[in-house]
Each structure stands twice: as C-alpha cells, then as structure tokens.
Amino acid sequence: MEEVKKKQAISLSEVQEILSKVDAEQMDQIQRWTYDYVSKFVSIDPKSAKDMKKQLIKECELTEEEAVEIVNIRPTSMAELRSFTFGWKKLILAETLEKILKIIKEHS
C-alpha cells in the first residue's frame, strides 16, 4: 500500500480528472467504482470546479472542505444553501450566502 503524501479536499470533478489519467486495467475495484460514480454525476469541468473552490475560499472565507461541498452540490437557492451551511455550525451572514450563490451561478 502506498504512503499518503498529501491530504487535501478535492471536488468530484477533480477526482474524475485524476482517475481519467489512470489506465482502467491498473485500477483497483474502489477506484473503478469511484470513477464510474463521478463519470455519471459530475456536471462541471475540473477547471471551473477548481476556480470556484478558490474563489469561495478567498471571497467567502470558507474552508477548503466547505468550498468542496458547495462545488459538489452547487445549491441554486438560498434555502438549499442554508440547509448545507447549517451543518457547519458557524454563522454565515446573508450577504456571504448571496455571494456564494453568485459565484456558483458564474461557474455554471
């Protein structure tokens, strides 16, 4: 088993990008299942996902993990966004939530 060199939260689009570079014959079963899953459900290209994640972290002061959650789900309404951010157990101002929705729309 390989040693973990770096631990980082990445979006499903980034997972798809990484796994697409691996020969399918070399993948283990979990990698194949993961690649199959992301191939079916990812609807944003990796560059847009990375850009959105960076923008959410910088402009909305989200953690990398929070930004990845937003990139993966891409909520479309304030109510939907609040349902995700509620679980983070920190206060996020309405203006920040509006900025998050604006960033999502810019990258969709």
Rank of each mutant, 00 (worst) to 15 (best):
E3T: 14
K6D: 11
K6Y: 14
K7N: 10
Q8F: 08
Q8P: 02
I10G: 04
S13F: 09
V15K: 09
Q16I: 00
E17H: 14
I18Q: 03
S20K: 15
V22R: 14
D23E: 15
D23R: 15
A24N: 08
Q29P: 00
Q31N: 13
W33C: 06
T34N: 08
T34A: 12
Y35F: 15
Y37R: 08
V38I: 08
S39H: 13
S39I: 06
K40Y: 14
F41R: 11
F41K: 14
V42N: 09
S43Y: 15
D45F: 06
D45T: 07
D45G: 11
P46F: 02
A49V: 11
K50I: 06
D51G: 05
D51V: 03
M52V: 07
K54L: 08
I57M: 15
E59V: 09
E59L: 10
C60L: 01
C60N: 05
L62I: 04
T63P: 03
T63M: 06
T63A: 03
E65N: 05
E66Q: 15
A67M: 01
A67L: 00
N72M: 05
N72H: 02
N72R: 00
T76E: 13
S77C: 05
S77A: 02
M78Y: 11
M78S: 09
R82W: 01
S83Q: 11
S83R: 08
S83Y: 10
F84E: 04
F84L: 13
W88Q: 02
I92G: 02
I92T: 08
I92C: 04
I92V: 13
T96Q: 07
T96K: 14
T96C: 01
T96R: 12
T96I: 11
E98Q: 11
E98N: 13
E98L: 07
K99I: 00
K99G: 01
K99V: 00
I100N: 00
I104L: 05
K105C: 02
